[in-house]
Design a protein around this nucleic acid. Structure first.
Length: 474
RNA sequence: CGCGGGGUAGAGCAGCCUGGUAGCUCGUUUGGCUCAUAACCAAAAGGUCGUUGGUUCAAAUCCAACCCCCGCAACCA
């Protein structure tokens, strides 16, 4: 049995889960479910990134111990993942003691590629962070948030020598040994790679305390990179356990904003450890609200829990997997969401199940599946290429085709004419088709497809409440 | 000349790589059906494919220039 390892980006837990996280989970979960049905044994990681100043400050401002704060937030992400019906097998927290220990071991193993150097730059004591020369110039040397002049500050940090691996990474990307999806991001990454400087991987404990200590140097704490990125392998037990059965990952799902780190820093770490590179890094787009990026300042943020509560999990997954482009940015609007729910889920699929089940129930017919379900070649091709929205479109065309067929075959006429065996034969064929489609639909909509299978097992009865109830018109 | 994405019917998109009567979904209009969640099926209307020029028998598609939106530029998915 083939082993498949799938990862999702670990969100920084200084806030509530948002729509973007959901995007990551829905895509990865669909692929995981697809892989399982294809016969693979799947390991599927999810988790949270819990270190860093922002979290430390947030906890302080709330006057609660930081560990307590991250515990609470980690739980809210766990709940969120479970609400989305994500089939992850592992959940990692960067504050897990095992992660911390393994992470330090990874640092030690990378030591040949890490060096200490002095960093000098503009620093805002209000923001507690360094700003780029460009940002400094654009703001004319004064922080707009704090109306304070930037100070010139220097600090000693550890750096990871990206230059040791640039050529290898470049080659891996160019040859698709490590495939960057979508294709158009590949050139972007290659261009970035050329200019990539060595990356600072630690902070002085004066600046940052809430993090993993650097081995043998108690004045420094690991900055996000080595701490967070290594989660993908520490969760598998590296370096204590042999991870070669699972690693390299079949696919790592990330948002487009963090692609660069996953395509440059992460491969550098892996090469430094002598590990193979992931087969695919898939970067998805953002979900926009009316063409604009969701932002707290604009106030156009759509809370995923609101969407989830509206029509439930299947409607949620349906929208984000079909109407949100897998790779490009797409809009979320309530109008579109409602439209897709009413027209497609309720009218196309829900009503299809209803009409078939109703006519079978009226005629006291039973159904037992005789065939082994399998995916169509076209479907497999699209899914293997991570073209989820297109695969979904393909399946939906089949849903509509069954509705068409019912109209063509007019089973109600057979019923009226008392042609019982013909009727049974006709309906059996239609249900068989529906269940084949249902199977291809199941990686996308695990809940409702399960219900549909049940409805058409044994004595067929329509669901007591519609699969996708519509609001009563006033 | 920083990098990238996009500009195709009222809306959202496909087609562009590998030129050959402009396609899908929603919406609109009309008709059909009645098994079904006022659902389903069919047909019609609606486009100078961002602009200009070039290559070609033929350009949404290839080439050049330009215009307009939108992202990214050390950590917001």
């Amino acid at each position: 049995m083939a082993k498949t390892y799938i990862t999702t980006a670990i969100p920084y837990v200084n806030g509530a889960p948002h729509i973007g996280h959901a995007m990551d989970y829905c895509l990865a979960d669909t692929f995981a479910r697809y892989a399982r049905l294809r016969g693979d044994e799947v390991r599927f990681q999810a988790g949270v990134d819990e270190h860093g100043n922002k979290i430390f400050q947030k906890a302080s401002s709330l006057r609660i111990p930081v560990q307590e704060y991250v515990n609470k937030n980690a739980q809210s992400f766990k709940d969120f993942i479970s609400d989305l019906n994500v089939s992850n097998t592992d959940f990692i927290r960067t504050t897990d003691v095992e992660h911390v220990r393994r992470c330090q071991e990874i640092w030690t193993r990378l030591r040949n590629h890490i060096y200490k150097a002095k960093y000098e730059g503009w620093y805002c004591s209000g923001c507690e962070r360094f700003v780029t020369q460009k940002e400094h110039d654009e703001n004319h040397g004064i922080c707009p948030d704090h109306a304070k002049a930037y100070e010139k500050l220097s600090e000693e940090n550890y750096y990871l020598r990206i230059s040791d691996f640039k050529e290898q990474i470049k080659k891996a990307i160019e040859t698709n040994e490590m495939r960057i999806l979508p294709e158009f991001r590949k050139n972007e990454v290659l261009a970035l790679l050329d200019e990539s400087p060595d990356v600072s991987v630690s902070r002085s404990t004066v600046q940052l305390t809430w993090g993993v200590s650097v081995p043998d140097d108690d004045t420094q704490v690991m900055y996000v990179w080595i701490d967070a990125l290594s989660n993908y392998i520490t969760v598998l037990g590296y370096p204590d356990q042999d991870i070669s059965a699972w690693w390299p990952a079949a696919a790592q799902f990330v948002g487009k904003d963090i692609l660069r780190f996953h395509a440059i820093i992460w491969p550098a770490m892996l090469l430094g450890l002598g590990l193979p590179l992931p087969k695919v890094i898939l970067s998805h787009g953002f979900v926009l609200a009316n063409g604009q990026k969701m932002s707290k300042t604009i106030g156009n943020v759509v809370d995923p829990m609101d969407v989830l509560q509206r029509h439930g999990i299947d409607a949620f997954r349906y929208y984000f997997l079909r109407h949100v482009d897998t790779f490009l940015d797409s809009d979320f609007t309530w109008d579109k969401f409602e439209e897709s729910y009413n027209n497609e889920l309720a009218n196309d699929l829900g009503n299809l199940v209803q009409r078939l089940a109703a006519i079978m129930a009226k005629n006291n017919l039973e159904y037992s599946a005789e065939q082994e379900y399998c995916f169509s070649g076209e479907y497999i091709k699209l899914m293997d290429d991570f073209e989820f929205a297109r695969a979904f479109d393909l399946v939906w065309e089949k849903v509509r085709a069954i509705n068409r067929q019912i109209d063509e075959k007019k089973p109600w006429e057979l019923a009226k004419a008392g042609k019982n065996s013909e009727l049974a034969e006709c309906l059996k064929g239609l249900v068989a088709r529906l269940l084949t489609v249902n199977y291809e639909l199941s990686p996308f909509l695990p809940n409702v497809t399960g219900k549909i299978s049940e409805i058409f097992t044994g004595n067929v009865r329509p669901p007591e409440t519609p699969l996708f109830p519509k609001e009563q018109k006033k």
